[in-house]
Amino acid sequence: MSDEDDRLLVIACGALAREVLDVVRLNSLDWVDVECLPANLHNTPDLIPAAVEARLDAAEERYRNVFVGYADCGTGGLLDRLLEARGVGRLPGAHCYEFYATGPGFSDLHDREPGTFYLTDFLAHHFDRLVWAGLGLDRWPDLRDTYFGNYHRLVYLSQVPTSDLVERASGR
């Protein structure tokens, strides 16, 4: 068995990149490699399975152990079909950022108010580009209530809060 056989590749959503790298670094997981896909795939979730599959194909000869750092993430079960066929695990739940709150914690947040919009450090930092422009609100701000009219609460799942990020999040 080569050294590479013992390594784990994590193929993660770019929106989780910093946190995943922090977990690897802080726990000295030097047998873990991390690759990330563009975070803006979240705006076109139907493209996520193909993008993950391409990375799995590319990694096939180099890694026996792969984990995917996505949850369902709007793929409607299509990512699961791919991963089940390839025998690869993923983050649990509907959204990749759920694990910041832990599975039960996130369920509790959701059950208490289904109309909750969740921000992470990444989303707080990139909100204007990924969310606002990604939904076309920079061009058609009148659609704001169509998209967000049912949201009544904002939860900031901050991992490394800075005054700048907290300010950005509280402005949403």
Partner: peptide
Amino acid sequence: LFVPEVLLAAN
């Protein structure tokens, strides 16, 4: 067409 355009059409 994408979601924003469909929403505008629907409106």
